[in-house]
Design a protein around this nucleic acid. Sequence first.
DNA 1: CGTACGGTTGACACGACTCAATGGCAGTGG
DNA 2: CCACTGCCATTGAGTCGTGTCAACCGTACG
Lengths: 251, 251
Amino acid sequence: MGGAGEPVVDLATIQLSCKQCSLAELCLPRGLAPNEVEELEKAVTPRRPLPRGASLYRPGDRFASLFAVKSGTLKSMITTADGEEQIVGFHMPGELLGLDGLNTQRHTCTAMALERSTVCELPFVQIEEICRRQPALQREMCSLLGKEINEEQAMLLLLAKRTAEERLASFLVSLSQRYRRRGYSDTEFNLSMSRHDIANYLGLAPETISRLFSRFADEGLLSVDRRYVRIHALDRLRAMVEGSVGVDLLG
Amino acid sequence: MGGAGEPVVDLATIQLSCKQCSLAELCLPRGLAPNEVEELEKAVTPRRPLPRGASLYRPGDRFASLFAVKSGTLKSMITTADGEEQIVGFHMPGELLGLDGLNTQRHTCTAMALERSTVCELPFVQIEEICRRQPALQREMCSLLGKEINEEQAMLLLLAKRTAEERLASFLVSLSQRYRRRGYSDTEFNLSMSRHDIANYLGLAPETISRLFSRFADEGLLSVDRRYVRIHALDRLRAMVEGSVGVDLLG
DNA sequence: CGTACGGTTGACACGACTCAATGGCAGTGG
DNA sequence: CCACTGCCATTGAGTCGTGTCAACCGTACG
């Protein structure tokens, strides 16, 4: 295998290059010097794509690695004893997941692909090792963990204090910003999650999400066709979440 | 100042001893070897007590240190543009706070004493430095950050899915466990926070908290006198939060 | 072509909020 | 020492937002 001119690459031997990755400024290497990125690269191991619905890890799985989304979208959710689920985050390209395993060395969440997705695996012992030698990465990791905490706190406020309307508006504004940062349109995009997932994430009933989409459309804020959303008045959506924290936290 | 036999100690020169601290097994030194604790101790700087209502830090303050509660209780809250507040956590002795500043090097929360409280200050640059040399502390810090994330995720579920009754039960069970771990009764204690604070934290109205306390008392679950709570049926309270995550997360 | 699932819409119910009045404790000043 | 005065807490009455239940539709997929 691996003869000259063969287009198929051997997944076990190639190294993913962070330097060449278009997501580098969004991902862990953000803010690292070239030589530091090189060191980080060595730790990155490739992984075969996850089909829609596949789990990257499940509750109880041994925590060994963090994962950076390379393409696609994933959701993280916690599960209660009686099988109820709560989505605690959606992960877009360049975003890290797996932090839920840091405490007990076992994952508490399920990470599931919402569509065919690829991720980079970052073995945690190696991350730790590099952190000891490269203060810049140590800083970056801390910043990242702090961001996760800040975002979840902003989410607590959203769930504790905001109306259904404000929650959906906030969700859309957040998606919009995240798409923009990735070079996509911030006013038209395809949702990779179902109404059910959105509802679950926002602590609402799926029917409420449907009704709100219809109302937003009636009010000229946006138009929806299935999962395709076109935002017509991003400023008015923003105005609805005025006073919310978390919108400009996505550092 | 500081003459022989003078009982007043100089706050600027004494070193707090983590080894002798009764909270050591709950706090950062948990799981560290004696020589590692010694090193950590050197970084700890004393701080004068905070009177009730005083802030340890406010949003926008430069992040320079983490704080460990030595006595008393504090609350952390985020504030929206229009002055609304959301309490995101209560901090009891042995617990760390300040993690909200890790992302941007500026605090996003207000940390306020609910009663006269003392804290140990841990300058963050020193923590980072020791982490590089002492993998055990590095691990402990990661575990701690992971725990914070896990707990906030459990809180997201509580706010998104649980009824008012379940939220208050969950809150009381959590308090009960935390008191027990600190050597206090897990069935009788004084709440250090007002009904208003509890309501804010749980995403409810203060009136709802009052009504629930009355109902819980009617049902023989507990008795309340002002802020003094006696739990009569901890098992039944636990049963009400069955299926909730987060109860046994407080590693 | 059939079936299943995701999404939309309507009718209704109910949990929690709001508004309002009252009570009681604690801290303050006379 | 006692009255004053907030603030916190309790309780009731009424409202409203959102959930629940149910029917229907369209699309995607087998």
